[in-house]
Design a protein around this nucleic acid. Sequence first.
DNA 1: TATGAATGAGTTTTCATTCAT
DNA 2: CATGAATGAAAACTCATTCAT
Lengths: 185, 185, 185, 185
Amino acid sequence: MRLKDEDKQRRIKEAMVSLILQEGINGASVAKIASRAQVSPATIYIYYDSKEAMLGEVFREYAHRPYRYLAERVRPEMNGSELIDALVRGCYEYSAAHEDVFSFVEQCSRCPSLAETVCEKDCGCDILDVIHEYQRRGELRRMSDWTFASLLFAPVRFLAMNRSSVCAEENALEELIETLQGLLR
Amino acid sequence: MRLKDEDKQRRIKEAMVSLILQEGINGASVAKIASRAQVSPATIYIYYDSKEAMLGEVFREYAHRPYRYLAERVRPEMNGSELIDALVRGCYEYSAAHEDVFSFVEQCSRCPSLAETVCEKDCGCDILDVIHEYQRRGELRRMSDWTFASLLFAPVRFLAMNRSSVCAEENALEELIETLQGLLR
Amino acid sequence: MRLKDEDKQRRIKEAMVSLILQEGINGASVAKIASRAQVSPATIYIYYDSKEAMLGEVFREYAHRPYRYLAERVRPEMNGSELIDALVRGCYEYSAAHEDVFSFVEQCSRCPSLAETVCEKDCGCDILDVIHEYQRRGELRRMSDWTFASLLFAPVRFLAMNRSSVCAEENALEELIETLQGLLR
Amino acid sequence: MRLKDEDKQRRIKEAMVSLILQEGINGASVAKIASRAQVSPATIYIYYDSKEAMLGEVFREYAHRPYRYLAERVRPEMNGSELIDALVRGCYEYSAAHEDVFSFVEQCSRCPSLAETVCEKDCGCDILDVIHEYQRRGELRRMSDWTFASLLFAPVRFLAMNRSSVCAEENALEELIETLQGLLR
DNA sequence: TATGAATGAGTTTTCATTCAT
DNA sequence: CATGAATGAAAACTCATTCAT
């Protein structure tokens, strides 16, 4: 008996994600994914029940990644101002360093059937816990999680999405961070 | 006879948009669009060179719509706070009243090949002109267009995307507006 | 607009039936059928919703054929013995002249999912009406339709199925007819 | 250990047969058979060279079963009338008690490639020997084996195939037996 | 202009079979 | 002997597009 090859599954996921960056969620056919992952199309069906299921499972897994990346950058000794800087800048940097995952998650989260299986709030719950702590300490303004998340994550992703257009005025990120630091108390 | 033609094209566009809301950008095949629009698949090729071209053209046309909707709600007698309220609330309302167009534009704008043909800034230029005017008058903070747009539009769309989850705490929109009034003035 | 080509559909049906004779119900793939019918595989899906549906529809259509063939050979002036001769011999001749249809119907009628959509009694109802008439006239023994049909059609089909083995003793058919004339009158 | 092996092979055969009853000869894939038999697909290839070979071997084995069942019900002290009753009724009962084997054999015997590897006459040779004996004794009419087999086995299988439709008139079996007893001398 | 038929190239998925353990 | 992983080939089916009318 051969053991399930975890490297193979990793390659499948990476192939899918990178393909979706390049060709959009439309262009990522099972055949293309398989050939990029250097496996047979049939092999994909050992790991996933269907293409739909694969997209969903990988989306659910990867949707957490940016948040985990952020969680690693938060230090307890930061003050509120530094926290906002770390989170917003971290988000922007993640989108540059992991363009494929970023684009994959953005595309999936707009696709109605996929989006409803993942809740942003659940993905970012660790970060939200941190924020709650800062709010309790009076370092951050109190507001609902959704409001906070919308302000912290959406604008920077918006800039990241339009990076090529925005890059002329590279200080947009700095300006955004500065403005959001107005959320401090 | 010209009326009939325009009606056909309208039906095609609406069929495409509503289908993409329901089945995602993947599920909208030419055949399904045609059948929903009650035309022959061949007819679609009278109006558009290819499916790709159709998606692009309609995206470019519809990407302006939310902004046009907003432009109509702006009144010169508003002060800065009222402007922000009108724009953010307008954005939220538009996404509810035109769920299909909203979802269509969101999906297209995440799809790499399509997104690069449309620039948010161009779509919203009328609104940005208004904002510039308010900035000149000192009623809104000065910051780059991208920063302003990211704060004004991205968070509310984020809430709109997660409407079903957010709805429990319906005051998130009010909170957002209030907060933005603080940040942007 | 191109008209639906009835010849094409005829070719599809004939291709399917002849292929099933040669390769069994297993070996008749859509691709093979299409290539034998000189159409594209996709064309088959214009005429039928699925392979399953195609098999079912054609089975339902062709199941009547042998009976129609028999109905044409019945003459009112025949007496009971002649009727039995005509029906049994006709059945045997049909299986020789239309080996493909015969084999196709036999195979389908053994496949549980298909068989339950077709009732032998309905297919042969015209013949059964004739038999009823003969029974009323006292020229054939009275017995239930199923019993009569089982004796009239099953044995001769059994011989037809085993034609190659049986052929050595070609008089089996004559013997059967003679015997049935004794049993059924 | 040998017990275990034979048990495995038995499970494989039973899985195949029961699957073919439910899904037709088409639907019985090696994977499904393996999973139903609770063995690995690879294991099947320890016992059989190929799927084709497996079908053939099991068909050849199982084709004898109904006849063996009948042979057990024949008693030397029966007269001709009782013999016919035992054989026809036995056939009907077998098809009810072993629906899966019955359906399996029926399906295989209609499939050209399989059918030519099995001869009904060989399967039923024990029964035919008995019949020869009765013919010699003058208790049964003399006729060729094929004719006799066609009359004794085909009609009752026909009724068995259509059991669900026939069941309304349950006396069809009795009627058939009675009629076939006309074959007595 | 408008159409439903038609299709080659593609899709997703399953197949019978073999491999590595 | 037995296995679950793996696969090339082929399955059923769909696609965007064009044809003939």
